[in-house]
């Protein structure tokens, strides 16, 4: 075990993957000698050479198209998109290519080796274009896996799991926690499973589902609620697609209440998918409407970011409203 922040844990995961398998390559804008704008790829070029860790020209669709080709050839590309907000020029390559390579060829070809890393989320005074949480766009695309870690330990294990998963994975990293999330991380090679949620905290009155940076916010709200004797169960979805319905449904069958929280806007957010599925699975057990605490249906703001964010106070109020329904 070593104390690491999330960036160090991600760097450790990339280092581990590159050391274990020479087919693993890391590339993207500024990831080479600079080690990425957040330094997630620090020292990888120095350690593994320019052929395996390198800067690309500034062209996101090129980066992911190139990565698709590499993955089809049998390499294991880990492509970095500098900010999730800048992933959209690559949307075609991800949605129409990465996601459908296997299906359209009858599994003659696949890009299962592909992992796309991108920092996402707000809380850093980043305005429209350094704050968005675009997971729902990708969750609407069968063929992709979408993974979001909540802390340093999870980040290393899930990233290694993503790199070694034989499906294209979009891996969104909560950049607000890059340096803020510090914890004990095994220095050894370990993987956490994709497609499995984790019950972070058990409770009996209400189930709270979130992922990534929002888990920390939910935990703050839970602390407030538990002072008022509301017993909360917290589930980190970890993988948004394909998501772990069983774990959430089993929890809601027990608690009878569900709250989903994410930073992305309300309408069409992944919370809507969770709510629809759970109401179908747990209809007769629900004691209150499923609550969603999310960003507003607006672009991500700057000066009024604090007001926009689904913070712990909003989550706390929604917990109270649910149990008092």
């Amino acid at each position: 075990m070593a104390r690491m922040n999330m960036l160090q844990a991600i760097n450790h995961a990339l280092d581990t993957a590159m050391a274990a398998d020479e087919r693993v390559l890391c590339f993207g804008e500024d990831v080479g000698v600079f080690g990425g704008v957040f330094r997630a790829t620090s020292n990888l070029q120095q350690k593994y050479g320019k052929a395996r860790c390198f800067n690309t020209p500034l062209v996101e669709q090129g980066i992911i198209g190139f990565a698709n080709g590499l993955a089809a050839q049998g390499s294991i590309p880990v492509a970095e998109i500098q900010f999730a907000d800048y992933i959209f020029p690559a949307f075609d390559q991800i949605v129409n290519e990465s996601a459908k390579y296997r299906y359209r060829s009858g599994n003659l070809f696949n890009v299962g080796g592909l992992t796309i890393r991108a920092p996402y989320g707000g809380g850093i005074a980043g305005g429209h274009y350094h704050s968005q949480s675009p997971e729902a766009y990708f969750a609407h695309t069968p063929g992709l896996k979408v993974v979001v870690p909540r802390n340093a330990h999870q980040a290393k294990g899930l990233l290694l799991g993503a790199i070694r998963d034989d499906n294209p994975v979009v891996f969104f990293e909560p950049k607000r926690l890059y340096r803020a999330s510090v914890g004990d991380v095994p220095e050894s090679d370990y993987q956490l499973p994709l497609g499995e949620a984790e019950v972070v905290k058990e409770g009996s009155d209400i189930t709270l589902v979130a992922w990534g940076a929002q888990i920390e916010v939910v935990e703050q709200a839970v602390e407030m609620a538990e002072k008022e004797r509301v017993s909360c169960e917290v589930i980190d979805l970890r993988t948004i697609l394909p998501w772990d319905v069983e774990t959430v449904a089993n929890s809601v069958l027990k608690t009878g209440r569900l709250l989903v929280s994410h930073e992305a806007p309300l309408t069409g957010g992944f919370g809507a998918e969770v709510a629809a599925t759970i109401q179908a699975r747990c209809f007769l057990y629900l004691e209150s409407p499923i609550a969603r605490v999310t960003g507003l249906d607006t672009p991500f703001p700057l000066a009024l970011e604090k007001e926009y964010m689904p913070d712990h106070l909003k989550v706390y109020e929604a917990i109270k409203a649910s149990v008092e329904f």
């Binding site: 980043g126 305005g127 274009y129 350094h130 672009p299 703001p301 700057l302 000066a303 009024l304």
Partner: peptide
């Protein structure tokens, strides 16, 4: 400073 007189209404980062 993204203040009340900013034409962009304080929505974007500085220099926009």
């Amino acid at each position: 400073f993204g203040n009340e007189l900013d034409y962009g209404k304080g929505r974007q980062m500085p220099v926009h």
